[in-house]
């Protein structure tokens, strides 16, 4: 099932500058795995050594933070938007 992944500025060097990529996936875990296989290096930016989502970036399925759903096992319905929003500090 196709979902749209919004890629933040910090990770676009891995997607040849693309701000959005389309991926066939049913869970956040699959989204991350496919991002890694299509854009090597992405996995390490999103997950820590234990395989959990890093705590300084949030992943939203539509407008819900997956930390408050099923974390990396959160399902991503057909047509949903998966946004990766890392913390930024600039001011």
């Amino acid at each position: 099932m196709a979902v749209t992944v919004k890629v933040p500025a910090q990770l676009r060097s891995l997607t040849d500058g693309a701000a959005e990529v389309s991926i066939e996936a049913t869970t956040v875990r699959e989204v991350v795995a496919l991002l890694e296989s299509q854009h090597p290096g992405m996995g390490a930016r999103l997950l820590d050594e234990s395989g959990a989502l890093r705590r300084f970036l949030n992943v939203y399925v539509d407008d819900e933070d997956v930390r408050f759903l099923d974390g990396i096992e959160t399902s991503v319905p057909e047509g949903s938007k998966v946004s990766i929003i890392p913390a930024v500090a600039g001011g």
């Binding site: 930016r45 890093r54 705590r55 300084f56 970036l57 949030n58 890392p86 913390a87 500090a89 600039g90």
Partner: peptide, 15 residues
């Protein structure tokens, strides 16, 4: 609650 931890400096370039 939004971001429990700061990113390591190498992943958080400043302006």
């Amino acid at each position: 609650c939004l971001y429990p931890e700061a990113p390591p400096p190498e992943l958080a370039p400043s302006c």
